[in-house]
Design a protein around this nucleic acid. Structure first.
Lengths: 180, 180
DNA sequence: ATAAGCATGTAAAGCGTTACATGATTTG
DNA sequence: CAAATCATGTAACGCTTTACATGCTTAT
């Protein structure tokens, strides 16, 4: 259900079409949904039914009619209530930890290869996230406070991967000293 | 599909019933599924169909027959292949970051209250995870290497919450210096 | 007496992903 | 000539959660 509020949040910032939203979801790490059609168009329908957004239809030649969604006052109120509501803890799904739990089945070489690959993948992600954060740069926030909050959400994601990278290096280091 | 391998991993360590598995899932942070009946009993059926586990039925008075599942050689091979396979990156779903993104709608007091509540919740989780890690202590691992790996998976989870705690404190600190 | 533990399973509903479908325009 | 962009939507499938159903035993 949170995807509705994620969309409402984006619309509180500017009016957008489903297609626009789809692209925003696709390259955001904070908005962790895939942003597929099914979810977005359905959520927009529901928001519309609830009166939290209005839609404006622009007919186009050769293309399906574009629907631009705008948040209503009721929508702003609902969004504000959600933002004020009790924060949820992050949910982390780390399948690699499960793999590691049973990695004693592997030879030393296999285990060290797996750990090395994981470190590399985390590092690639970290660089990608840092690049994204850099590109955001001076954005169209509505206030200095909003700029600060957006910076900090990006920093959060970077820090998660940095933490993971530090951890996996520690694991590899520790393994070397385990059975020489 | 990973839940099958999670179960297979647990069975590689000792034979268990669906009910046993359910309890293990319920209080594990690494095994991030809720561990509800539907998932576990279905997964066990599928593992059985694939010949990766065998079941032994113990009839009990006054209680439904208990089915104890044991991993087969084929199951061990499948598990080993999965453990060796390309590691996935962690998936983090942090709804709080989305809330923060639109928190400019709130007054200073409301925002600072939300951040404080989040810090408290993260801290509670951190203590709970540390306590769990402590209680694990000297466990029934099959080798010193497995003991080490299990320790490190627990440390990973603790580090995730520590990282989150450090971050939210930084956010609060930064807000104070933003607009005095 | 009430609740928790043991032990299995089913039903229903929601969430999420991939793929399909259309079809002109622009870019490589 | 192929692929991507624009722009909407549907279908099918699988994952995940909550709740329901049974029923005896043990602890509070």
């Amino acid at each position: 259900m949170t995807i509705q509020f994620a969309i409402l949040g984006l619309l509180s910032w500017q009016s957008l079409s489903g297609y626009d939203l789809k692209k925003i979801f696709a390259d955001s790490a904070v908005l962790y949904w895939s942003g597929n059609n099914n979810q977005i168009y359905k959520a927009l329908l529901q928001l519309h039914e609830q009166g939290l957004v209005t839609q404006e239809i622009q007919n186009q030649e050769y293309l399906p009619a574009k629907k631009t969604y705008t948040i209503t006052e009721k929508g702003r109120t609902a969004l504000k209530a959600w933002v004020r509501s009790t924060p949820e803890l992050p949910e982390v799904h780390n399948a690699f930890l499960i793999q590691l739990s049973w990695a004693d089945l592997l030879t030393e070489e296999e285990l060290s290869a797996t750990l090395k690959r994981y470190e590399e993948e985390v590092q690639v992600q970290l660089l990608m996230q840092k690049e994204k954060a850099r590109r955001m740069g001076p954005s169209s926030a509505r206030s200095p406070r909003e700029t600060y909050l957006w910076e900090m959400t990006l920093k959060n994601i970077v820090s998660v991967y940095e933490n993971e990278l530090t951890w996996v290096r520690q694991v590899r280091e520790g393994l070397l000293h385990l059975s020489p």
